[in-house]
Design a protein around this nucleic acid. Sequence first.
DNA 1: GTCTATAATTTGATAGAC
DNA 2: GTCTATCAAATTATAGAC
Lengths: 209, 209
Amino acid sequence: MVNFLKATKIDKTTEADILAAAKKVFIARGMYGARMQDIADEAGINKALLHYYFKNKEQLFEQIFMDAAAQLFPRINMIFTSDNSLFEKIESFCEEYITVVQENPYLPLFVLNEMNRDPVYFIKKLWQKHSGPDPRKFLEQIEAEVKKGNIRHVSPLHLLMNLLSMTIFPFMARPMFQQFVGLDEMQFRMAMEQRKKEIPAFIINAMKR
Amino acid sequence: MVNFLKATKIDKTTEADILAAAKKVFIARGMYGARMQDIADEAGINKALLHYYFKNKEQLFEQIFMDAAAQLFPRINMIFTSDNSLFEKIESFCEEYITVVQENPYLPLFVLNEMNRDPVYFIKKLWQKHSGPDPRKFLEQIEAEVKKGNIRHVSPLHLLMNLLSMTIFPFMARPMFQQFVGLDEMQFRMAMEQRKKEIPAFIINAMKR
DNA sequence: GTCTATAATTTGATAGAC
DNA sequence: GTCTATCAAATTATAGAC
């Protein structure tokens, strides 16, 4: 019987609380730095109940990591699969990606960090969940533009690296950039907002012939 | 009396062994993930002796972190302080930085990761050791080039971010890029080698008017 | 489902012999 | 300076009552 009169929270709500708490703690401190006690505290429950919902730390972590990765990778895949023109892809990617990461600024560092810990394992897990991105279309598209004479010769691989680097890296290196140039939180946020237009403009200029 | 006949290694050698082992383990697993036992094993000694040389884990870590940071930050500062032309700076920075990171590919992720754990603490420690980089000269130099009409208008901050991003990020995201495009270790290494020229060319094209 | 209490394990650190 | 043995604290995980 469903206990709809119960005062305390029930399963799905508690589970959601735990996942939200775990996300916060894992992303802030990583797999090793995170403490089950901290996650329980953050979720407003105790450790025993935490283990009731998730058998062990590793299992909980994997779910958080996969969710985090799922917020980042499909948007990269978008570059590869969409039917837009090259310039449109670059523009919409910067716009969308920076918007997402502004709201989750620690996601990229978290994901890349854990990926590097055990690349083989995580990539296997990731690619079996979301079908692996296939960059062939994107690479061919660049070659075609070069052939048509619309852009100067650029290496597709390096263009891809440049695009992703300029979009993602500043969030991972925020403390460094803030210190270098003396930006407060608000100024940094504004700079990232500018980059939605700045990066595409930069790339387009670099590709002009 | 110096025991130069002793078969076993003596102090300075052991200390060096420990530091090398600690560097390896800390960079691979971070402050929290690293185990003193692993460091001892890697150095070929036991935990007790490890604590004889370094009072505690934190002190050992700090030394490793500072050494790692010292390999990366002064080379960035080079951009700011040198008297070369803007183009020369960009070219020599890419050349030198990629060379260093090719030999220590996990350093950037390690340093940025630990920096994000406690930005205030680490930045204070860092800046009191090596005098803080001062980007004013570099920023002014860009403004001057714009004014002289040598390059199109570019935001100095964004140019700096673009340069550092394109140079450093691919090493941090190596598993991702390798998977995306299907590169083995050797092919990735070659791609990074190409970037020594590719990045400056890309930037210079983007700045042409 | 949720709690208290506690077991089991890991791990940083120390004591003391050689 | 290096080791064996051990402690003390932290942390994951479980037992069992409600």
